[in-house]
Design a protein around this nucleic acid. Structure first.
Lengths: 187, 187
DNA sequence: GAAGGCATGTAATGAGTTACATGATTAT
DNA sequence: ATAATCATGTAACTCATTACATGCCTTC
């Protein structure tokens, strides 16, 4: 009979959401709303989390004994979470473990392209335009963001943005090229 | 009281999994195992599905009235699914609708990089090496795949692979550059 | 004819999404 | 003081993941 939850009783296998929360709490205590805000303008850009996930996950981490919770007296009785030593350990362990998982790219545009033989030419054209625009917009927005935070931000976080920019530019270019081909055929 | 399921009773909002299955069934009837195989060497490369999903989803589509099911007499009583006109319609509708959803890139390597200030230098080095290798391997494998199927494959599917290759090369390069920087600092 | 792997499926659990609900704060 | 928006949370539902179970087919 496995012992689930309670301090010291960790059994659950942590997932990406867990590490996002632990990672954020590692630099300062936070409420779920804080987490939500912080996620929104960092990793949320490419890996979205519903806000309810950032309410659920810290609660699970408390049950796992990795995070502590303190409830505000009176008022809204907000809950603030703080990482525990066991939480830091778990995080270290994760950071020092090999990273073999395959990257998942969930792109509905790509899916539609894959099935484009079932679509009308006009649909395809629209798809290419939409996707080109949206990846361009994102690349631009990352670039701007990087300028803004370049001076004070953590260097690794800057690197993360850099990868984001490269990725978005690459995809933008793909759609641009594809669009050119399409327009060549039926001008 | 909403009417769920049953032919003509579609209410459920279809998701990506639904369209993957519909898209595959659009070219030929298939069993769940067929779907699994086909996914495995196409879109499964970047968007993984557990095999049980490919057992569950067709069943849901049957309830939605978009797909029909026929059970083999005797033997294993295998179930073969076939797309119905309503299913084709749903697919068309999807293909011709705008694609505004943000692409999600779920990359644990990227996450670790983001939190690298909490890691040891050795961990970071390992991360960069791992990720560089694995993206390179994947880019190579896509490239090979493309050669193999170039002659007979659907042109749009080839385009999909091309995007895959570009993406993987781009990320490979990122990690290579990053690795070079790291090794420069502590040779 | 036994072993190992491919094929086929279900059950249990855990996670993610959507919708709802309402308390605070700010702006007008 | 009302409206609008931000902050905070829960409930219900859908979906995904993992584990289990076992049938069938090939090969030795």
């Amino acid at each position: 009979m496995p012992d689930r939850g309670g301090p010291r009783g960790r059994r659950r296998k942590l997932n990406a959401t867990s590490y996002v929360v632990l990672g954020m709490l590692a630099s300062r205590p936070a409420t779920s709303y804080d987490l939500k805000q912080w996620v929104a303008h960092t990793i949320g850009n490419f890996w979205a989390f519903a806000h309810s996930q950032l309410y659920d996950e810290p609660a699970r981490l408390v049950a796992d004994g990795l995070v502590s919770e303190s409830v505000e007296e009176g008022g809204r009785r907000r809950r603030t979470y703080e990482i525990l030593p066991a939480g830091r350990e778990a995080l270290q362990e994760w950071l020092s473990s090999p990273t073999t998982e395959q990257t998942e790219v969930r792109d509905l545009g790509l899916l539609k392209l894959f099935f484009a033989n079932l679509a009308e030419p006009a649909d395809l054209l629209r798809l290419a335009r939409d996707r080109h625009e949206s990846h361009k917009a994102r690349a631009d927005s990352y670039t701007e963001q990087r300028e803004e935070i370049a001076d004070y931000a953590d260097p690794w976080q800057l690197k993360t943005i850099e990868l984001g920019i490269r990725y978005e530019r690459c995809v933008e270019e793909f759609w641009a090229d594809f669009l050119a081909e399409l327009e060549d055929q039926q001008p």
